[in-house]
Computed example of a mutant assay.
Amino acid sequence: MSAPLRVLIVDDEPLARQRLKDLLAEAPDMALVGECRNGNEAIAAIGSERPDLVLLDVQMPGQDGFGVLRALPPGHAPAVIFVTAHREFAVQAFEANALDYLLKPFDRERFRTSLARARDRRRAAPSSLDSELLARLESLTLPKPAAPYVTRLVAKVGWRMRFLQVEDIDYLTAEGNYVAVHVGKQSHLTRETMAALEEKLDPKQFLRAHRSLIVRLDRIEEVEPLPPGEYVFILRDGTRLTSGRSYRAQVQRALELPT
């Protein structure tokens, strides 16, 4: 028989950790190697214990679940099942290659289904030696492809997720912990930072013109310079947006304005 899957539990709620431990105890091929109360503990435990599977909460003090994954060295992340009471992070979880997204409260059968996915993942995975050799060969022989820019964004609409085509977006503005994506007369909130969205959007199509503004270049119909080094963009529909003074140079480059 193969060795049991080594499992790490990460959740800031003691009762939630206890329930996961009780359910894991019913699976003889699963071995609990530790439990963590926050993201920082999880990062340290993953480095020291090298678990095969992490049952990971999303919202925790300090580093959240996605922050934990970002902090791990490339190629060394274990399989992850997100366990959370927040359904709005499901799309982001699967974009992070999570095995499953367990929404609290869940029953015993649903938990067993998640563990079955972890078992299937292990059976389908190549040996660690093969993976390491393949990674080394690829790093020596293949250039790393540039990350493709996204063609759609995901916005939260009540309990649902709405997909917004990038080609339909007029501009984006920061709204507290969210970014408002403006499409015509409608706006939709997405839980991403302006910096993250700037990385995902093609700079040939979108311009970061303010710390709180990204605008689609082909929507700009007129530009009015302001004395302090700012610019007013007048979009096709008449919307007026103002750039930030510190973004003056990149606005001039993107729009080929005189310096």
Rank of each mutant, 00 (worst) to 15 (best):
M1Q: 08
M1C: 04
P4N: 03
P4D: 04
L5F: 05
V7Q: 01
L8T: 02
L8G: 05
L8E: 05
V10Q: 01
A16Y: 10
A16G: 10
R17W: 04
L20R: 05
K21I: 12
D22T: 10
D22K: 12
L23W: 02
L24F: 12
L24M: 13
E26C: 06
P28W: 08
M30Y: 06
M30V: 05
A31L: 12
A31M: 11
L32F: 07
G34V: 04
N38P: 07
N40F: 12
I43D: 00
A45S: 14
I46L: 01
R50V: 13
P51I: 04
V54L: 10
D57W: 12
M60N: 04
M60Y: 06
M60Q: 06
P61S: 04
D64Q: 03
D64G: 02
G65P: 00
F66Y: 02
V68G: 00
V68E: 00
A71E: 08
A71D: 11
L72F: 11
P73Y: 09
P74V: 14
P74K: 15
A77E: 13
V80F: 01
I81Q: 03
F82Q: 00
V83N: 02
T84R: 06
H86F: 14
F89V: 01
F89E: 10
A90N: 13
A90L: 12
E95C: 07
A96H: 15
D100Q: 03
Y101G: 12
Y101L: 14
L103A: 13
P105K: 11
F106S: 01
R108Q: 15
E109M: 08
S114H: 02
L115C: 02
A116R: 01
A116G: 02
R117Y: 00
A118S: 07
R119A: 11
R119S: 08
R123M: 03
R123D: 08
A124P: 00
P126A: 09
L129E: 14
L129F: 13
S131E: 15
L133R: 09
L134N: 15
L137C: 14
T141P: 00
T141K: 09
P143Y: 05
P143I: 03
P143T: 00
P145I: 01
T151W: 00
L153G: 04
V154Q: 07
K156N: 15
M161G: 00
M161Y: 03
Q165L: 11
V166Q: 08
L172P: 07
A174C: 08
A174E: 06
G176P: 04
N177S: 12
N177W: 04
Y178K: 12
V179K: 06
G184N: 04
G184M: 02
K185P: 01
K185W: 04
K185F: 02
Q186F: 08
T193V: 00
T193M: 02
A196S: 13
L197D: 02
E199F: 01
D202W: 03
F206V: 07
R208A: 09
R208Q: 07
H210T: 04
I214H: 03
V215R: 02
E221N: 09
E222R: 15
V223K: 11
P225Q: 10
G229M: 07
Y231C: 12
Y231W: 14
Y231S: 08
V232E: 13
L235K: 09
R236Y: 06
R236A: 15
T239R: 09
R240W: 09
Y247H: 15
R248Y: 05
R248G: 07
A249Y: 04
Q250A: 05
V251F: 11
P258C: 08
T259C: 13
T259P: 15
